[in-house]
């Protein structure tokens, strides 16, 4: 039944899911903005974040016997993913920075095949799951219904991550250096900025965020090898709507897609797969540069 309460609950769930989408999409858009590389394998990093969390906290896992294992995994898994990301950047993407986009797209597409199928070979295709830690594994009363607190937790963490990133990029010297490197590599280099280091650092940060998204998703959705492809496609839709390279676009686009999906799932389940597509079509036809895209001087 459509009530205001059920709509409100669907919106809250949509925002929670939108935060995970944001963590994935913002890394993609950040790496594109600074390095001018679109990493197709970014979703695969998210998937790895979820699997690493699973293997760290499940029975026999490295952290399983420690108290607060989930909280530790929330730090360790993203770091492991960041390590994978840095290796990827160093050995495969760095040689093609100044090449046509098609080389980067093809290479990272190859990586998707390797990582996603590698996961199937190593870990099988069965769903796996992780329980939220006891501390936040409870229901709250929201608009008269029991509502999992974990979703609220996702919203808090996502909002904190967004705020931290915004502060770092807008208010600190590091942020200025990164923005300068993205606007003009040659100039930044001439000013003594270690551009390769900035690039590797950006890739590391983007991968870390994808890994964090995956780790947070572990108790939220079933863990399976296809979660990488789902999230990368949703991230693509987000950057088409928000504009590639735009921080605000990634945030708004992620929340929009999260909420729209959540509402559609509840009220228009048969049309749900088509709705993001319609959003993309409307944006492309009415705002060709994306909602947050800017026209730039040549």
């Amino acid at each position: 039944m459509v009530t205001l309460d059920s709509i409100a609950l669907a919106i809250v769930s949509g925002i929670a899911n939108g935060m995970l989408l944001f963590l994935a999409a913002v890394g993609l858009t950040l790496i594109f903005g600074v390095l001018d590389v679109l990493n197709f394998a970014h979703g695969s990093l998210y998937m790895l974040g979820a699997y690493f969390t699973y293997f760290l906290v499940s029975d026999g896992g490295l952290l399983a016997s420690l108290p607060g294992s989930f909280w530790l995994a929330l730090v360790v898994a993203p770091l492991l993913v960041a390590l994978v990301g840095v290796v990827m950047e160093r050995f495969i993407i760095r040689p093609v920075y100044d090449q046509d986009h098609e080389f980067q797209l093809l290479l990272t597409f190859g990586l998707v095949l390797v990582i996603d199928n590698g996961a199937r070979i190593l870990w099988g295709t069965d769903f796996r799951s992780v329980s939220p830690p006891g501390l936040i594994d409870f229901q709250i009363n929201l608009l008269g219904s029991g509502y999992p607190f974990y979703n609220v937790f996702l919203i808090i963490v996502g909002a904190l991550a967004a705020l931290t990133m915004w502060l770092v990029f807008e208010r600190t010297r590091v942020g200025k250096i990164v923005r300068a490197s993205s606007q003009d590599r040659g100039m930044a280099n001439a000013l003594g900025v270690n551009v390769p280091l900035v690039f590797t650092g950006t890739f590391l940060l983007g991968s870390l965020l994808a890994g964090l998204g995956g780790a947070l998703a572990a108790p939220y959705q079933s863990i399976q090898p296809t979660m990488g492809e789902s999230i990368i496609i949703e991230s693509f839709i987000i950057v088409v709507i928000g504009g590639l390279g735009s921080f605000g676009g990634a945030f708004a686009g992620a929340l929009l897609i999260g909420v729209v999906n959540s509402l559609a799932f509840l009220y228009l389940p048969s049309l749900q797969p088509v709705i993001p597509f319609l959003l993309v079509a409307v944006v492309l036809l009415t705002r060709p540069a994306g909602l947050f895209g800017k026209e730039v001087a040549a």
Partner: peptide, 13 residues
């Protein structure tokens, strides 16, 4: 397709 992915990287490079 894992194997094909492994081939793509050196082919493109």
């Amino acid at each position: 397709q894992f194997g094909l992915g492994l081939l793509i990287v050196p082919i493109v490079l």
